[in-house]
């Protein structure tokens, strides 16, 4: 069916300006909820970047001597596998360790240039059955004296606390984003319902003369699309601006400790794309639902 571009543009425009207040409120709600979703992602990403080695319940890292023999490595593997206190362990060879170091120090190339893969010790990352301090201490002492072991590190309380707090905050942010997301959805439904109610005479005539339901719906769905586009583009702008501000503060104040929390531009781009896609899809779907729901005005 030939959709008349003039008609669609005119109707969508009228709908958008008919209730500017509600349109703006809807867009802002979309912005805030998407910004929160994005922020939660970025916090998670930052924490993950900072503690790459301490993810997924890893409490203990056993560093072997760079000169450790394959026999010593194999013995350690068997010992860990047989230990009832060890839930899981993972062997990290020199190359993998170097890749992680590259990621960790991407913001300080001078540090990276001083490292070679052969300098890095291979290690075992250990997830114990119970993660309490006492158990971890016992394991630490047990393996510190094994053959070929250089050093044993355990996750200290600071790392655990930061991870826990960050996890809690990002969960909280996700929850807030969900609530706001629902608010945005309800607002979109409502904008469309009001637009359709205002146009009920037109819709009645359209049905009478044989306009298809799709034809009737399209201008209203486009209204949702425009709201989704504005909302998600603004949200991305806020996030990029916020992330740059955070990074520049890290640099300016020379907070070395937090430098690892920086999120790369590719991460931000990835999240932005996700937000735009989600924002637009959700608003189009909801306006489509609303347009079908309220077509019998």
């Amino acid at each position: 069916m030939a959709l008349n571009v003039d008609y669609v543009a005119r109707e969508t425009g009228t709908n958008l300006v008919r209730n500017v207040g509600l349109t703006i409120a809807t867009i802002l709600t979309v912005v805030v909820s998407l910004v929160l979703v994005g922020a939660a992602f970025l916090i998670r990403q930052g924490v993950d970047n900072a503690f790459t080695t301490w993810r997924g319940g890893i409490e203990l890292i056993i560093y072997l001597e760079p000169t450790a023999t394959p026999q010593q490595t194999a013995a350690m593997r068997t010992s860990l596998a047989d230990n009832p206190e060890v839930k899981r362990s993972e062997y990290v060879d020199k190359e993998t360790a170097y890749k992680e170091a590259k990621k960790l120090f991407k913001n300080s190339p001078e540090m990276l240039s001083s490292i070679k893969p052969s300098d890095l010790p291979p290690s075992f990352r250990v997830v114990p059955v119970r993660g309490d301090v006492a158990t971890v201490k016992v394991l630490e002492n047990q393996y510190a004296k094994s053959a070929g072991v250089r050093e044993v590190f355990s996750a200290n309380d600071t790392i655990r606390t930061v991870q826990a707090i960050a996890g809690f905050i990002s969960n909280l942010v996700v929850l807030a984003a969900l609530i706001l997301g629902m608010t945005a959805a309800v607002l979109i439904l409502n904008t469309i319902r009001m637009a359709m109610f205002a146009r009920r005479r037109e819709i009645e005539v359209m049905k009478l003369v044989g306009a298809t339901n799709w034809f009737i719906r399209v201008p209203f769905m486009l209204e949702g699309l425009v709201q989704g586009i504005f909302g998600s583009v603004l949200a991305v702008a806020v996030l990029v601006f916020g992330n740059n501000l955070f990074n520049s503060q890290l640099d300016k104040r020379g907070i070395k400790l937090l430098a690892n929390f920086a999120v790369s531009n590719s991460d931000v781009t990835g999240i932005s794309v996700i937000l735009v896609v989600v924002g637009i899809t959700v608003s189009v779907i909801f306006s489509g639902i609303a347009a079908s729901l309220y077509l019998d005005v």
Binding site: M1, A2, L3, N4, Y7, E202, V205, M206, V209, G210, A211, F215, I216
Partner: peptide, 8 residues
Amino acid sequence: AFALEVIG
């Protein structure tokens, strides 16, 4: 015109 417009 509306009657013709909305049926494309």
